[in-house]
Amino acid sequence: MMGFNGFFFEFKFWCDFQFFLCNMQSYVKMIIEMEKAVSAENITYSYNKKLAVDHVSFHIDKGEILGFLGPNGAGKSTTLKMLVGLLVPQDGKVSILGMNTSKELKKIQAQIGVCFEEKNLYEEMSAVENLKFFASLFGVRRLDVVALLKKVNLSVEKRQKVASFSKGMKQRLMMARTLVNYPKVLFLDEPTDGLDPVSARAVRDVILEEKGKGATIFLTTHDMMEADKLSDRVAFINDGKISVIDTPENLKHEHGKRILRICYRLDGGVREEELSLEDKDMSKRIDEISSKYSILDMHTEEATLEDIFIKFTGRKLVG
């Protein structure tokens, strides 16, 4: 009769154990993958030998907003086009909701919403006609168009031709169009670019509302404040490569300089001095200034995402 030790050293045991380990590994991998709504691995694309996106990898967890920041020509739109299936990556792969874009693109596209930077609406048609048309392409028959237009403050203009809309109204309609199929993942390309504050706020409200419902959002923007306010994580892209990807708080904490700015009167004029909050001698210096001079203003300043972007890429985001 074979004892426990005997079985332990048996070949069959090791085979079963190895099989179990392999299954566990793939099971764990599957669970991790299931948590990722969007996953890009080494995606690459070049236009006429000019590399636009160079082996970029990142993922977006379910329910997360990823801000994708970069100057013009950095590769943001090309990345977005690869994610939504308008361009086929020349290398690497994209998975959305656990499906590979090269194999199940149409299934993926049924569950995503894309808001383009260009106002690509049918201008000769009304807002309602535009929404109904796109809903029909998704096979959505019972779309509450009125509620959707109300969400973007366009219910009054619903029968007007889009050609008569302002830029802000068009953008709000674009946002409404993005939602006609109740998407699980949203891809928004510069959704508030060039909008008046009211329209920009309306768009931001929709983004946050969708996030509240559990949607995953890929957001490209020039607006650092917007990215900071809306994004759970941000990625900086420059010359087709991602320089860094992290939460705005972490980036500012790890790479930004927190300072104390003091303005005081000196020899009839005003002098301004910056003190690092991390500096141990800071309080000593404040005491020194307050004892000798009259302090006019004193406030702390946090590093902005813009500062960190410049630190990483050596470029400004706009211009």
Binding site: V84, L86, Q109, F116, L121
Partner: peptide, 14 residues
């Protein structure tokens, strides 16, 4: 030109 084709091609339309 107006990229409305792109808007259609990111739906399930092939």
């Amino acid at each position: 030109r107006k990229k409305t084709a792109d808007a259609i091609l990111v739906t399930p339309v092939s």
